[in-house]
Design a protein around this nucleic acid. Sequence first.
DNA 1: CGATATTTTGTAAACGATTACAGTATCGTG
DNA 2: CACGATACTGTAATCGTTTACAAAATATCG
Lengths: 338, 338
Amino acid sequence: MVSIKDVAKLASVSIATVSRYVADPASIREHNRERVEQAIASTGYAPNSLAQNFRRGRTGVIMVVIPNVGDPFFTDVMRGIARVAEEKHYSILIRETEMNTLSFDEYNDIVLSKRADGIVLLASICPVTPPRNRPEDRRSAPVILSCENVTEELAQLPSVRIDNVAAAEEATDYLIKLGHEKIAFISGIATSTLTADREKGYRNAMARANLELRPEWVQEGSLSLGGARRATRKLLNGVYLPSAIFCANDEMAMGTLHEIKVAGLRVPEDISVIGFDDVRYAEITDPPLTTIAQPAEEIGERTLQRLIRAIEGRDIGSTAEIVPHQLVVRRSTTSPAD
Amino acid sequence: MVSIKDVAKLASVSIATVSRYVADPASIREHNRERVEQAIASTGYAPNSLAQNFRRGRTGVIMVVIPNVGDPFFTDVMRGIARVAEEKHYSILIRETEMNTLSFDEYNDIVLSKRADGIVLLASICPVTPPRNRPEDRRSAPVILSCENVTEELAQLPSVRIDNVAAAEEATDYLIKLGHEKIAFISGIATSTLTADREKGYRNAMARANLELRPEWVQEGSLSLGGARRATRKLLNGVYLPSAIFCANDEMAMGTLHEIKVAGLRVPEDISVIGFDDVRYAEITDPPLTTIAQPAEEIGERTLQRLIRAIEGRDIGSTAEIVPHQLVVRRSTTSPAD
DNA sequence: CGATATTTTGTAAACGATTACAGTATCGTG
DNA sequence: CACGATACTGTAATCGTTTACAAAATATCG
């Protein structure tokens, strides 16, 4: 491995001069610049970023904790994150978590052992041991939540997201406005606040409209295709058939659409379906999916911009930055038949 | 930041002892172990991985270059990669590339400046300057191709993948066996060898069956939903309507299915569609998609296992490790009407 | 018990960059 | 030309670990 020393020797200058050349070629005298340039060219020298990072005390890495790298919504958010990361010369380290949580121990380890300059959580952080209870908690790395809300147990963390409660209310209200009264909800996973917020919105809207909410109309779909399919089959085989199903994300809505058709029912004539996220597939499902659109890439971009500001030592507060959502009406919803 | 020195001082031992404790607690004497444990606990010490990596000359990072993080096939491969990475204590650095290629300059930079211990290419590497022509090319980091084949310009690189040519032949043969003669192909992007191989398989099969291959039956779909939709519209609006369309991946097949239905035609009665990859959505499209299944996660796992062997200094050769594919017949294909 | 083998520990030198500080060259000006 | 101001360069310390080597402590055995 060729190091700065080899270049210095070859160019007959000190290592400091080479270092300065790398940082800013204009800062050294013409005469030396030529020799250093030549030495670098002939040795093929490139600064060892391991040494640079060590010396500078920074990793240049942003860790992104994501519940499911396969979900098209999350990958859109990631694309926004990646765009800003590249622009600001950070790399993205992906950490997929089962169960949607990053254990606090792992969080702590990442921070203490300097494996990342900052963390974006698309998942929640598991509040086993809140930061404040640990010794030396001043050393915490910048963290920001994308999409997720915070659990009450944790200190308020900054976030960038839509208002999930309001958006879910809006989706439910739309079904109610169409005349639906028997509306089922397929939820995500228990540990996800995002899911909880959407369920809250659904319950709020049902309560406000004075609609009966049968317990068996809320089914867990684990935010996955398979989970939603199982949940849908339960709904279809139940005693009280809903006339509309609200799925907590589009991935699940795709599974729901399929199972309804497999059961020999039609969407939307027999059952209306509404999703959440407006992933790229929502436009091409059969029928195209009515859903709540979120500006996924923008959420990713804003999240990382804010995180980087924090990494640079500026104050970003701990507020939730709310971005707008929008109901997108396609053809998977209509008024109930009866 | 608390360092090994602080711990050593507090425990009244040398830093070497602390270091040894961290590497293997059993290697130090009971008496000292207790003191060190206590000192670590009370200071909240964690080894600085920046310093460790620097000292050890390794990053603990595998870079994964991926053309499109949103494609469900690639995310499945990534999941396999991630599983092995976690097991072997590597982190995954994602680098998404437009146009499917990593420029050689960037590759070189990653290697020379030690930003990753190894590279997995789900994309191709752009052969602007083949490694062999550069000075000091001995320093190349381990690279392995997943899915992709190699271009002839580049030295042979190790890879793990299916036999794309054979698989595409098999898909085309299946359509031919069903009685189709007017078979169109929606290809990926020009820079992708994966795409080229599948097109070759299609052409082979057509030639072997003595079927006419009209130039307008091969359309570029850029491996994306939108690209496939445009390509499909061209096929449907053309003078010679095909009776079957073979899409180079499932993502595109989903777009194709949609556009055929939008045009008022039925799948498979009017047009059969066959995809490639068997992503999780293939089962729930309408109708469910006939496709070629690849063991995506297994490909990812094997790729990384082999790469890690190379990183550890063992010889992995430069052969293509071929894993089996399989035709999965669902309901998007049938015999032509006429 | 003493000699030797074994285990455990400490000292100090790396790793490759950045940078404070001091020293040297260059320049401008009177 | 002398002088100070300015621009550039070199020396050496530093970041936090790991580890070769030597030294010290302990164990083993006749």
